[in-house]
Design a protein around this nucleic acid. Structure first.
Lengths: 353, 353
DNA sequence: CTGAAAGCGCTTACAG
DNA sequence: CTGAAAGCGCTTACAG
């Protein structure tokens, strides 16, 4: 029986730390039932203060920590949170993980990573199997899989907690963290327009990423404030990769009336644009201004260092974890800290002449 | 009771997929005891073929998958594998995770990530608490925390399975994956010496990383093959970061008799060296050759693209998972696929004159 | 406010 | 080769 009286040797093992304390040990040592210990663990209000203190003393003395597996089995739900992503950028993934871990610190939850392929025909059942097998407490989804309605639908159906990180509100507030990419695009447009650029180029991300459209929309807005516009022939589609950025920029730079400044949808593509400019014999920023998006490490490694829009990915991850764990009800912090912001470096300048 | 006869409504739920099958369902439906089902799950040889087939048919029919939490509780061990790391490079971390996931695919294990701080005074107890709380099946450690003997000692003490990824054999073969950084260094030295360089510079990683020393040792070996040597004044210590590489390179380039080629301990520092060269008014590779290590994305993003040593991090991760899960006994593949290799790009050339 | 019983879904001895 | 009983460490009704 689980509530049997332990043999003397058992207690020795406990004392010496060779055996971890269980709820039964705590109950016995505190002279209460395990149910009452359970109440303390789960912060039930209906425990007499003296009883609570007595139990907490024993818990502290023996360094008792409830077994997440046993609790999970009884709760029919684990203490694991899944990060489901298809964004291939390592820096994005790591920053997001760090942010989630920031928010989960001390919560007793652990982070399980689950890359996926948005293009897979078995995407929804695969994710579902992952969640049900591990009985995940909840999941955090990042773009572009966060923008998949079929996935969200399935999550609701099986009753899994979830938070979707996306550039616009794709779900109820309790289920989404909005990254405001549009605002970042606006800052980029404003910056270039203020420098005096009037002939502008844009390299978009892939169509399936909502951020591609938001960044462009914001960009056009920013230009408009200063009477500039983005003409359709100056838009090239990329894939958020270095190579695609290089190719797209090469196309834009081959135009008879080439742009004097290019806004690339992310830093990787902006780095590609830098290479394309070099191959076209153009100097940055003298002949061409380039601005990126993300402010990942690469932005300051290339030459010239990229002016870019800083996306606070780690902070966003922290918010996502906070929301998932329900500790974000009363967040009254300045919302600015989670907004994209402009970082000016050496790749942008006023146009010549 | 767990073996009670289910109510009709229970079976409906099962049929429709609203309820997941348990070992009791499978046992009842197959007309055997749950113990026998357990034997099939755990691949026990002592089950009659016909019995096994009958059970497997039911398992397939209902898509039964054993609950890892319940199994874990009974086994006193979870089906989680921890990645414990302190390497701050996002690309390294992500590549390693992908490799581990490659090796874990289909195994039923999940990956839990656990960044740590090697400098923390509570490093060992923190890791220990993480492992014991989650009852991890095992852990994979990467440099530099993989090189910490106190951590390894604790792992053995608590009987946790582990694999240490390191540049040399720091442990018994069953517990280590060797990345052969020395060989990579040798390729770098050979390459530069073959190009004709005789005055060489080296930017090392931090002292606590064994790879710093291995890469240097190999480098000197490679030079020696061609009668070249690394003089002590041409060695600068970095910290595997971009900024440290920039500073270290600046110091080397300020020498009266400056080197014509620099081997940086990793790509990040090599990128820093490129910036330092530019600031010193030197062209790469005309005035200075630069070679990195890792072949992470950054290597092909900077200008000129870096000649570097490719470290097969993802493959190494796969090997680590294979070893941890014990599926690597009979690995007869060509060991070359897990060796560092030379990738020649635009940052190296013969010295002038 | 507190507890005894039953159960979560598995496995480990122990029998036979 | 197979099974009934007890247990892993918790929580959920249900009592009182």
């Amino acid at each position: 029986m689980s509530s049997r009286t332990p043999k003397p040797s058992d207690d020795e093992a406990l004392q010496s730390g060779r055996r971890r304390a269980t709820i039964n040990d705590v109950a016995r040592l505190a002279g209460v039932s395990k149910k009452t210990v359970s109440r303390v663990i789960n912060r039930s209000p209906s425990v007499r203060p003296e009883t609570r203190e007595k139990i907490e003393a024993v818990i502290a003395r023996y360094g008792y920590a409830p077994d997440p597996q046993a609790r999970g089995l009884a709760f029919r739900r684990s203490f694991l949170i899944g990060l489901i992503y298809d964004n291939p950028n390592p820096q994005y993934v790591v920053n997001m993980q760090l942010g989630l871990l920031d928010g989960m610190k001390g919560s007793g939850f652990e982070l399980v990573v689950h890359p996926c392929d948005r293009g897979s025909t078995t995407l929804v059942p695969d994710i579902r199997a992952f969640i049900e097998r591990q009985k995940l407490f909840g999941v955090v989804l990042t773009p572009s899989v966060s923008e998949d309605e079929a996935v969200a639908e399935m999550l609701r159906e099986i009753g899994c907690e979830y938070v979707r990180v996306a550039s616009i509100a794709v779900d109820a507030e309790a289920h989404s963290i909005v990254t405001r990419d549009r605002h970042g695009g606006l800052l980029a447009g404003r910056h270039l327009a203020e420098l005096g650029h009037r002939r502008l180029g844009f390299i978009s991300g892939p169509d399936r990423f909502r951020s591609s459209h938001e960044r462009r929309g914001g960009f056009e807005e920013g230009l408009k404030e200063h009477g500039a516009t983005l003409s359709a022939d100056c838009v090239a589609e990329g894939a958020y990769t270095f190579e695609s950025g290089m190719e797209a920029a090469a196309r834009l730079l081959a135009l008879k009336d080439r742009p004097t400044a290019i806004f690339a949808g992310n830093d990787e593509m902006a780095a590609g644009a830098l290479h394309a400019a070099r191959q076209a014999g153009l100097s940055v920023p003298e002949d061409l201004s380039v601005i990126g998006f993300d402010d990942f490490q690469i932005a300051s490694r290339v030459w010239p260092p990229l002016t870019t829009i800083r996306a606070p990915t780690r902070e966003i991850g922290r918010l996502a974890a906070d929301r998932l764990l329900g500790v974000m009800e009363g967040d009254k912090r300045d919302p600015e800290w989670r907004m994209p912001s402009l970082v000016v470096r050496g790749s942008t300048a006023a146009p010549k002449g």
